[in-house]
Nucleic acid binder design. Structure first.
Lengths: 200, 200
DNA sequence: GCTATAGCAATACAAACGACTTGCGAAATG
DNA sequence: CATTTCGCAAGTCGTTTGTATTGCTATAGC
């Protein structure tokens, strides 16, 4: 047998090159040749790891979702054993806003995929699948807040969760357009959470 | 002189053909030939009215913004002389959600432009310019609500306006992905407005 | 009625695209 | 040491892209 290389590691490297291009010029502006050049490899080598462009796009999307999920997990894990629901929600939200360059890149990539997902059935599945889980998680935190008496009992946890997701997403979208900064966006969500958690 | 045709009317027709394609397949999937075919004209004729593809895209964006602004204006005008701030806000929001097919098409087009705006300086200007005006308008309505005693005095009108814009935008984005329906989205914003306007 | 010109069709063209094929070197196995 | 198979480079293919060019037709003005 000839030499073996770590396929997954190579594919990850290529995916990261794709993100850099998608961030700078958009997903549709990323040709296979561009990605190969950005990754510092030949077109032939890229095609050795991805049989088609579509395969590359799907892999890159799954890869970035994994990384984002892991980042949120780490942040929440750092909160300690018994964190307050408000801190959990604010920590999650903080990870969903383009507060630093890396996160901003992630957002630009996510937006690039979002537009494609609108017209591409397969990608739409990927883009949608994370929402119910996130919504359930947020709703659980709201419910926990109600148990602790920090959230009014007449609030619908499922509705509040959806509101929070949509709100953060909208704030983040305008933040990447420089309509307002990510810090201002964070302040706005924080105010929203203040209201939800009875601090007046 | 030879015969003369109404250039603006032809350009508007071409722009509408572009929207139909952008709605179905995205902006990047719309070639000049596709647009010409959709408009029922030849490529040569299309080029007669738009010297370059970029010129066509910019015109189509400005045209759809004009139409959307006029729709909102009509809806608010139909509210009568002294409408309540809550009704004004809900009416505006209703126009910003993809509740019918025409509105959904408008949203898909807007999304297509949004992604392009992230990477295109000129389009970004167009995409951003409408927000401050809308925010000021919403903030004015919140302030009016405070004067009428319907909104708590410690709410920051500017912040509430930004929250509402971002919230509606996020809800609308997920609505076009079919994560939830536009009707559910409307119900969620309505609940948000209930809270803002002291109905508990 | 001649002419200038707007309107428009048809075609050409270079560039770039994704996909595919071929071929060679290297290395681990037998 | 031979052989097999992976890793990869280079080139080619047909298609599609935006733009440019050419030329015909009809009409308004002189």
């Amino acid at each position: 047998m000839p030499k073996r290389v770590d396929h997954e590691e190579r594919r990850a490297r290529i995916a990261e090159a794709l993100w850099r291009i998608a961030c700078a010029r958009g997903l549709d502006g990323a040709s296979l040749r561009d990605v190969a050049a950005e990754a510092g490899i030949s077109l032939g080598q890229l095609q050795h790891y991805f049989a088609s462009k579509d395969e590359m796009l799907v892999f890159a999307l799954e890869h970035i979702s994994d990384l984002a999920a892991r980042r949120v997990g780490e942040r929440l894990g750092a909160l300690g054993g018994e964190p307050s629901p408000r801190d959990v929600l604010l920590g999650s939200v903080r990870e969903m806003l383009p507060l630093d360059d890396r996160s901003r890149t992630g957002h630009l990539v996510q937006i690039a995929y979002f537009v494609r997902a609108v017209h591409d059935e397969r990608l739409r599945g990927h883009a949608k699948e994370g929402v119910p889980g996130l919504r359930a998680f947020f709703a659980g935190q709201v419910r926990e807040g109600q148990l602790r008496g920090e959230v009014a009992g007449d609030r619908d946890p499922e509705a509040e969760a959806a509101l929070l997701i949509a709100l953060v997403d909208g704030l983040a979208s305008y933040a990447v357009l420089d309509v307002w900064t990510a810090e201002e966006a964070l302040g706005l969500v924080s105010g929203h959470l203040d209201r939800l958690f009875g601090v007046r």
